[in-house]
Amino acid sequence: MRKKEKALREMDAIMNHKPLKARVFQRWQLYLLLLVPVAFVLVFNYGPMAGLVIAFKNYNVRQGIFGSTWVGLDNFKEFFTSFRFPSIMKNTLVLSLYNLVVTFPIPIIFALLLNCLHGEKYKKVVQTVTYIPYFISTVVMVGLVFQILNNRSGLYGSFYQLINGTVGPNILAEGPLFKHIYVWSGVWQGTGYSAIIYIAALSNVDETLHEAAVIDGASRWQRVLHIDIPTILPTASIMLILAVGNIMNMGFEKVLLMQNNLNLDYSEIISTYVYKVGLASGINDFSLSTAISLFNSVVNFLLLILANFTSKRLSGNGIF
């Protein structure tokens, strides 16, 4: 009984806005539970952020982060004036914009079409099969692309020979084709998965809207334009903000795996360059690569803010 009274008094305290100290103390068990997850994020997410100071230093292992000398913006200057800078910047922008322009609308179109389809069973089969590729790992995906586009033994080679009678050119070695292979293999892999969210949004459309539109003589296409598309617009704008906020981080692992010496002029992007300068080449210039990486993150973050701001202005939807 006493226990119950005490508990009631506690509830009361919450309702009556006890002083902060008392409310914090009451919830001590929650803070205890939060301790470990917070520690993980602190060490593995904020730790690396603190480490970003080496972008402004000349880091070497012996002197450590604190002992190394400050060099101001020298690392950034070195990157911006390096002869690789224009081509890396261009590749990053071309690849990410091309990727965004193609992989953003296609899942929306796919979801809209699927929503129009008659026959629940076929719909289900199409949806289930099209998101299988999402579960293929990047390594296997790239291996698969290499195998299938092989000009001798792959699917592409077989068909080329069947049609033209000769061995096809090696498209994997042609730099200008890199972006197409990258983006369209991404469409193959990601469309079904990315469409799920739109399909879910479309399943919430008010049926009476459609019924009323049919009575007014609207064609199915008009109903797509005036009912279905407005329904998924809020979801689409959120997804667009997230996509823009991730534009400079896109597909680093996949690009890295798809690179070879023949396409490097077209496939070297900021994130792969960071990896090479910092960890993969013999140079291991931590400061320079961190500076490049920081530049990348800041640009990315600004784009996210900009996209969020624009979207809020235009449609009232934003992520923060």
Binding site: I14, L20, R23, V24, R27, L30, L34, V38, V41, V43, F44, N45, Y46, G47, P48, M49, A50, G51, L52, I54, I65, G245, V274, Y275, G278, L279, F286, S289, T290, S293, L294, N296, S297, F301, L304
Partner: peptide, 30 residues
């Protein structure tokens, strides 16, 4: 838990890492 004092701040502490990170080099150093 809505009755957790500082809930908004702690949530931000987590979500901020979705949009900004230290990158691979400094993570490697950690």
């Amino acid at each position: 838990r809505r009755d957790l004092p500082g809930r908004g701040g702690i949530t931000l502490f987590f979500t901020f890492t979705m949009f900004f990170n230290g990158g691979i080099i400094t993570t490697y150093m950690v």
